[in-house]
Design a protein around this nucleic acid. Structure first.
Lengths: 119, 119
DNA sequence: TCCATGTTCAACCGGTTGGTTAAATACCCT
DNA sequence: AGGGTATTTAACCAACCGGTTGAACATGGA
């Protein structure tokens, strides 16, 4: 269930323009036009980008007359961080174990221990 | 310079199969065939996925006879974590400031402070 | 040397994506 | 009601993506 969400989030952030939009929203809410101003693409293109961010749950929007101010939803970052940290930790643990193994092999070398045994 | 790299990493992880491959590599190195086994796509498709992960710097490969064992490069996660944490922190700080502002407004209300002044 | 195994390359296909322009919608103001 | 501003929708296009099949390449073993 979270998996599809994670795909949306990662693919939303895969685009540099969208990452820049997120970066700017981190400094404060902004409207579509304000967000579009620095880029040399049409405002429609930026509107699409924002929709992608919104669908990923990274951005929410309210209404202020004609304007639709965009707001960064920071909680989503937790989802990513959790995913990342989990596998980083696993990989690091594995690295530590390998390190320990190498040390051990250094002490009592070449007992011809079978290392792999695939089903 | 890091920006293009970040795009590669995020878009690599936007695919659920590739995320699963990363998850499995976190538990230990594996060959292309081993990695391909659980999925119902061809080994060529998995080979492509691995290439994407490799281009993003998430995976490195050595050689063992015909086999090309894949190894998870955990350092790349730091790049992501740094990017994510930075903006999450900014957004949280902003949230805290807003909170403080609201409290302050509660104490001495309606001084008609101009809030916005663009350009 | 020949063959089996593991992996990649090439060409192709349908769906998605990021962009465009043009038109529609939503809201405020007079 | 009518006009101006902000934004979205629709239709289209070229490029990219994830998948396929079929052929090629790389390596170790009989």
């Amino acid at each position: 269930m979270t998996d599809a969400r994670l795909s949306l989030v990662f693919s939303a952030l895969a685009d540099p323009t969208r990452r820049d939009i997120v970066a700017r929203l981190a400094a404060g809410d902004a409207t579509v036009n304000e967000l579009a101003e620095p880029y040399d693409v049409t405002v429609q293109a930026v509107s699409k980008h924002i929709k992608v961010l919104e669908d990923a749950g990274l951005v929410s929007r309210s209404r202020d007359a004609q304007r639709r101010p965009c707001h960064l939803e920071a909680e989503v970052f937790d989802l990513m961080t959790k995913w990342i940290e989990r596998y980083r930790r696993e990989a690091e643990d594995r690295f530590r174990r390998l390190d320990a193994l190498l040390e051990q092999m250094d002490e009592q070398p070449a007992t011809d221990t079978p290392t792999k045994e695939a089903s």
